[in-house]
Design a protein around this nucleic acid. Structure first.
Lengths: 200, 200
DNA sequence: GCGTGATGCGAGCGGGAACTCGCTTTCAAT
DNA sequence: ATTGAAAGCGAGTTCCCGCTCGCATCACGC
């Protein structure tokens, strides 16, 4: 951020730039994400853009951050509602929250995951994973589940990697399986792994 | 491919270019993967490079293809050795093959996964996934496992996504879990899901 | 050993994109 | 109304990169 906008007009401009950045990403793709194009989409001149952003990357960074924070927030809040429940219903709601979070804005998600270098998402994405993993580890540690695996950290890591990628690939690749069925498989996978009864 | 090399000298040049491309990717990263740089690394002139490759992408494509074909080959051949076994030993060997395949060349893997847009890997990667998934589905269908899940296709899809990403993240992120432990978790995850006995 | 196609060269062209700078317009406080 | 700062402008600068083209060199068949 080069200059902090003080007047209402410039604050709106910054938001227009960020909205335009998002729009260019979705509509034109990452390859065509150029500062001139973003400025044009925002209806401003390139020079104005550089009044507030130091470079192209900083615009992109903010767009990415906002997206992942949004996903993270939705997922975590869905999880927070479920701290009391146990067994397969709890697992199901976690899986549901993950799916819902990623389903929120699939077009932007597709660009971020498929077109950007993964390293661009790395930090924000890691933050999300850590957040979910810690909640999961706490849940496991609270003894809500019989202790079937030796290392709770490792177990949480395995679960989160598996769940997240199943949800991610389902949203992005649209395989011919209904949402409900995938959700059930996610529950079954987790429940089987943790030896939670009442799976089927 | 613009011209097919006939003399031994030019065949060597093509290989030098591909080797240089690989080297530039690993040492300088995808961002700096330029044709001039590849030519310099290969010890030839930019013009010579375009004698045999139509554009920059075609060089990269071949480097990527060769990598994934290598991984695919290693993984599939490890799997082929195991068609007779059943139960957890079979699962373990599949997981081991996946890990081994990805461990083969982690530095190039890192560049391909972290720095390239995922869409660049998409086709080759999908080929690998399909190959493994079909083997898995056949295995499931052969009744080597009790039929615990309703849809064998879906089950195979879930398993492959989960296993592949656990292996991938373990190789790339180097979390502080020993290989053996992760392997056991992969086995436990699968065995629990499929209700295979003798897990622990 | 000669000629012809194959191979190799490397300066340079064309273009696009990030970013700048001198200028104008707008705002708000007095 | 005045004025100084904030906001906005957009042609232009600079740089890099993909790719070409005219020419030199090499190697194999005769």
């Amino acid at each position: 951020m080069r200059k902090t906008p003080t007047q209402a007009r410039s604050k709106a401009t910054v938001e227009r730039i960020l909205a335009a950045g998002r729009q260019v990403l979705v509509k034109d793709g990452y390859e065509r994400f150029s500062t001139n194009r973003v400025a044009a989409a925002a209806g401003i001149s390139p020079g104005s853009l550089y009044q507030y952003f130091s470079d192209k990357a900083s615009i992109l960074d903010i767009v990415i951050s906002r997206y992942w924070e949004d996903v993270s927030e939705r997922t975590a809040s869905a999880l927070a509602l479920q701290t009391s429940s146990t067994g397969t219903p709890a697992i199901r709601s976690v899986a549901d929250a993950l799916l819902a979070g990623l389903e929120q804005d699939p077009t932007l998600l597709r660009v971020l995951i498929e077109e950007l270098p993964a390293s661009r998402n790395r930090d924000r994405h890691a933050a999300l994973v850590t957040r979910v993993r810690d909640l999961t580890a706490a849940y496991l540690h609270a003894g809500a589940v019989v202790k079937t695996r030796p290392d709770a950290q490792l177990t949480a890591w395995v679960l989160v990697v598996a769940m997240e990628n199943i949800a991610l690939r389902w949203v992005l690749d649209r395989p011919p399986y209904p949402r409900e069925a995938v959700l059930e498989e996610m529950v079954a996978l987790t429940a089987g792994y943790l030896q939670v009864s009442g799976v089927r």
